[in-house]
Nucleic acid binder design. Structure first.
Lengths: 136, 136
DNA sequence: GTCCCTGCAAACGTTTTGCACACAG
DNA sequence: CTGTGTGCAAAACGTTTGCAGGGAC
């Protein structure tokens, strides 16, 4: 985590108290928070941080390649700090929880490429998480 | 297409002019329209149809399992009438265009399941489409 | 001291909802 | 005739933006 802050400063990123608490809210390898959740975590540490700054900062981190933005079926974008390790996601259809998983990458046959240039692959396993299985 | 309308009536779905034009806008096997686009197509046939009815009807069709709702990175949900054939998507990161593709399904090893019950798999190949490749 | 970042509030685009009226069954 | 679907407008939601003031460098 300190790593992230150092990396950002080395890139000439202006390090403010707000940006620090937002980056710290994303600490950990297996977090998939929505902006609102990042906002709440950041606010616990620095109450005067604003939601707009959270959005601005998250977008910058995505542009810098320090976070992955993931489109979620519930309409709320999630942010994933795990940019190093190729991985996919298990997504609970009931509560929206996401966890990282390792799985083989599907391969797209040449005859299916239809002239598109492939940039990346996103795999989501739609699932029901242990907690939601219990309460059904 | 007529098939869909018949299937819906057989289920006791009240068949109105609005619902018919909306269902017809989704005809074809490889369409991935956003709600606004469905609205425009429907309105060409039946100008007094409303956007609210389009949303209500699309949601019902999704609940009935007659359409797939797909979360898209640009924030607009797309609707896919191809519910029969297992398939994945090529998604253009520039213009948002989606096309169906056949590719092998990734398999999630047992030791990665973490107590989740797997319900389905969604694969999106992030790509650049031929049109957008040309204009870059 | 400069410039960039910040908070606030308003604007935005998409989707949902409340309500009175209309029409399919 | 009844119950459900409809249009409209307003609200709700996540996200973005304009602006004046403030703080990092």
């Amino acid at each position: 985590m300190a790593r992230l802050v150092v990396r950002l400063r080395d890139r000439g990123w202006r390090l403010t108290a707000q940006r620090r608490v937002i980056a710290e809210a994303m600490a950990g390898e297996h977090v998939h928070l929505a902006a609102e959740e990042v906002f709440e975590r950041a606010r616990e540490v620095l109450p005067e941080v604003s939601l707009a700054t959270v959005y601005n900062t998250l977008n910058e981190l995505v542009d810098m390649g320090e976070l992955l933005a993931i489109a979620h079926a519930d309409g709320r974008r999630r942010y994933d700090p795990n940019v190093e390790e190729r991985h996919h996601h298990l997504v609970c259809v009931d509560c929206g929880r996401m966890v990282d998983v390792q799985a083989d990458e599907p391969h797209l046959p040449d005859d299916q490429q239809q002239g598109f240039e492939i940039l990346g692959i996103e795999v989501a396993f739609r699932a029901r998480c242990p907690d939601c299985l219990r309460t059904v």
